[in-house]
């Protein structure tokens, strides 16, 4: 399964980049989301995947008695997921704003940093 997941991560990264290379702004954002998902999955995979053993101390015991999934990558990804939502919404709004101002969806027409050039 690890191989499959690694392949998936590669697909997510590759397609994410491909979408970011498009000139459409919506595709850019979709690309960022794909890339973010890929990164989350990559961290998850590299923390080693464990089946059926969530990092929750069972019942009455005070420590783990059996194998458990590594909680550190999970904590990392949890924050990453929430942050990426903030990022996505900001990016979406920025795109929308840019669209109302310059009336174009073509990123190539948004390359000027100031009004003179």
């Amino acid at each position: 399964m690890e191989i499959l997941l690694a392949l998936m991560v590669g697909i997510l990264y590759g397609t994410g980049i491909y979408m970011m290379l498009r000139r459409s702004m919506v595709k850019l954002i979709l690309g960022i989301i794909l890339l973010g998902n890929g990164a989350n999955l990559l961290i998850f995979l590299l923390g080693r995947i464990t089946k059926g053993a969530p990092p929750i101390i069972p019942g009455d015991s005070k420590v783990f008695t059996e194998a458990f999934a590594d909680p550190v990558p999970q904590a990392l990804i949890l924050t990453a997921i929430v942050i990426s939502f903030g990022l996505q919404s900001f990016a979406i709004v920025l795109v929308k704003r840019a669209h109302t101002v310059v009336r174009t969806d073509d990123l190539d027409e948004m390359n000027a940093t100031d009004e003179d050039s």
Binding site: V82, S89, V93, K96
Partner: peptide, 17 residues
């Protein structure tokens, strides 16, 4: 905070969309 952030974002966007 999470509740506030999400609602602010969604409300703001749906208002001006």
């Amino acid at each position: 905070v999470v509740n506030g952030v999400t609602l602010t974002i969604i409300f703001t966007i749906s208002e001006s969309a």
